[in-house]
Design a protein around this nucleic acid. Structure first.
Lengths: 245, 245
DNA sequence: TAAATTTGTTAGATAACTCTAACATTGTAA
DNA sequence: TTACAATGTTAGAGTTATCTAACAAATTTA
């Protein structure tokens, strides 16, 4: 009876410790946090199968890791329910994403890499534990707010600004917009954009829109006519001239 | 009988694969390789106890990892004998050290870090698998041959030049030398040197030498008299004016 | 709504890296 | 040269992160 009671008190004590003391997440855990963050829908929910798929692990693996993350207070999870990040988990995820995006920006602006080359390197650098290293990058770049693909860089507190760009696919014929960000930063898509000389900041004019397949003809720079499929238009995020902050 | 024979053939096949195909060494294995490389004496030998001590693991742990490294052809080892790196193991170790030292130099020359701050960061960055990342660093720095502590940077083939500096402790009274490298790059020692304004490239004059405790009085720059203990003198590597390559 | 499909869980195993305890070998010193 | 000390090895176990096989729940579809 007494023993049970002691165990109970100890378990409270350690639960307290785990939420208060920073037990560094392993690289694996960091990857799960990032995946959960990126997969979160409007309700902040993620299904185990999506998580497993994203990380290319089996469902039992994802399931058991989610249980671990819950023990350290980084997510909430109930059997057969979707996973939710806690505020602590969200913050930790955002800070990893901060390191990722700062690194990508540094590689492009300070080291001469192409925007299609940086993801794989940043994927490794983001796990480095050296606050000063990332602070120096940030400083050297003049505190950028977006990465080379237009995605916002979370601040030191893990807060992310919501840029709320529009999809190019929503633009009307005749409209002029600025290419501001991408909804897909895969190497393939970036190389597609490279081959068309489409860079962030480019002013685009929607020449026409094809009702049949939602493809668009646009013009920009020296390019008079370029046809973009619906699929491409949905991946291009744009802002209107007025909408600078 | 037939089964045994098949097993034997398979084992030969996999041994062959392991020596031919690049099975990436894990971060842990990389740390063992580096430690073996750094601890190697003139005969290239390392005792298990030294290795275990260097990596702060138990002897059984070091012992079993050495067996793994042997399986992948990175070291040679016989029961109760010291460990030896193979040429393949030496090369792999040197290439990790190359990444470490390039990183240290980059952090100091391109990112404004102090030489006492860079070791811990480089210790993490050295495990990044991204040849282009390190090649760009190298290029941006103009292909440096030494790191911020004067240690040589191995080339892309893993070859290390032997700079053969002398110990300051061997210098005679009256002699003038240039501080070229350090035999100890611990934070404590680097901070000691910082506090005395002793940097690589500084011209030192040996004012006098104390026979009793082997301490030295030196002068350099604006400093007329500075007493250095024997311990410090042994950690300072110097070259004479003539000995530039 | 019952059956089929999808999604999620449990159980049990494996690989990598680590440990301690116990034992074996080698080297050193009485 | 025997005994002690130092060094090295084996055995067995724990942790983390992964898997497959089998089962269970939830959801979709007929």
């Amino acid at each position: 009876m007494l023993e049970l009671s002691n165990k109970f008190i100890l378990s409270i004590f350690f639960t307290y410790l785990s939420t208060q003391i920073l037990i560094m997440a392993s690289t694996t855990e960091e990857n799960y946090l990032k995946a959960l963050f990126n997969l979160s829908n409007e309700q902040g929910e993620v299904n185990i199968s999506e998580l497993a798929n994203q990380l290319q692990v089996s469902m039992p693996t994802a399931n058991s890791m989610v249980k671990n993350l819950q023990k350290t207070g980084l997510c909430v999870y109930e059997k057969y329910k979707p996973v939710l990040l806690t505020p602590k988990g969200k913050k930790e995820a955002a800070l990893i994403i901060r390191k990722h995006r700062l690194t990508e920006m540094f590689l492009v602006t300070k080291m001469g890499f192409g925007w299609e080359e940086v993801h794989a390197i940043a994927e490794q650098v983001e796990h480095i534990h050296a606050p000063k290293f990332f602070e120096r990058m940030d400083e050297m770049m003049g505190f950028p707010t977006v990465d080379p693909h237009g995605s916002p860089i979370p601040d030191k507190q893990g807060r992310i600004q919501d840029l709320r760009f529009k999809n190019l696919s929503e633009a009307k014929a005749g409209q002029e917009v600025i290419l501001a960000a991408l909804a897909d930063s895969s190497t393939e898509f970036l190389e597609y954009l490279n081959s068309r000389n489409l860079t962030l900041g480019t002013e685009l004019k929607v020449v026409s829109k094809e009702a049949f397949d939602q493809s668009m003809v646009i013009s920009y720079g020296d390019v008079e006519k370029e046809t973009l499929s619906q699929k491409v238009c949905e991946k291009l995020l744009v802002k209107t001239f007025g909408s600078e902050e």
